[in-house]
């Protein structure tokens, strides 16, 4: 369906989108580590660790004789609510929590603004959580409305509660790739699908 879509383009922009703590930066780090030998950003159990759009340029992925070069754009998690008091539970001081909340709201706005610039998006969903979440639906719906190709990653399959079938049932019209970005599980299938979508 998307074949030849990006032919002739110099820099494909591959965005990583999803709700907070779904593992977007962990996937970005895995890709960068696998193909550049270095990580892209810091990860944390505290939500909204990534509060700015981060870009890594010219990443070339090679798989089974095929290769593709793109700019990777890791975006802040999209949320509909941000409460500084939620951050206090993670041991942040009130000042730090308020600062984090303020930066996080700006991060959400920036992530949405960047949507229009993307050539392709990896939608990262936490496979241990209910996928019928409005943020997931809004992200995938916006990509469909903008005709942006999307690869859905069911992340955290190393966890006991992971339920890939539920994600497949929620988004039946999309290819869902189960991975554990943290452990590096099933990354071969991920890269194969990524090249297929981008080529």
């Amino acid at each position: 369906m998307f074949s030849n879509l990006f032919k002739g383009k110099r820099h494909i922009k591959l965005g990583i989108y999803g709700p907070p703590n779904s593992g977007k930066t962990t996937i970005a780090n895995r890709i960068c580590k696998d193909w550049l030998g270095e990580e892209m950003g810091s990860v944390s159990a505290v939500p909204h660790e990534t509060r700015e759009v981060n870009i890594k340029e010219k990443i070339t992925v090679k798989h089974k004789g095929k290769d593709i070069t793109f700019n990777l754009i890791d975006t802040p998690g999209i949320a509909t609510r941000i409460d500084f008091e939620d951050f206090l539970k993670y041991g942040l001081s009130e000042k730090e929590a308020k600062k984090r909340a303020k930066e996080a709201t700006k991060g959400v706005i920036d992530a949405i603004k960047w949507l229009d610039d993307m050539d392709c998006v990896i939608a990262v969903l936490d496979s241990t959580l209910n996928p019928y979440n409005q943020v997931n639906i809004t992200i995938v719906g916006n990509l469909a409305a903008r005709d942006i190709p999307v690869l859905i990653c069911a992340n955290k399959i190393d966890k006991k509660k992971s339920n890939i079938k539920k994600i497949e049932a929620a988004f039946p019209q999309y290819e869902v790739i189960p991975i554990s970005a943290l452990k590096g599980t099933n990354m071969e299938e991920f890269y194969e699908s990524l090249i297929r979508v981008l080529k």
């Binding site: 609510r81 941000i82 709201t105 916006n142």
Partner: peptide
């Protein structure tokens, strides 16, 4: 929907 989220964040 994304416009509503942006407005909310603002």
């Amino acid at each position: 929907e994304t416009g509503l989220i942006q407005k909310t964040m603002e």
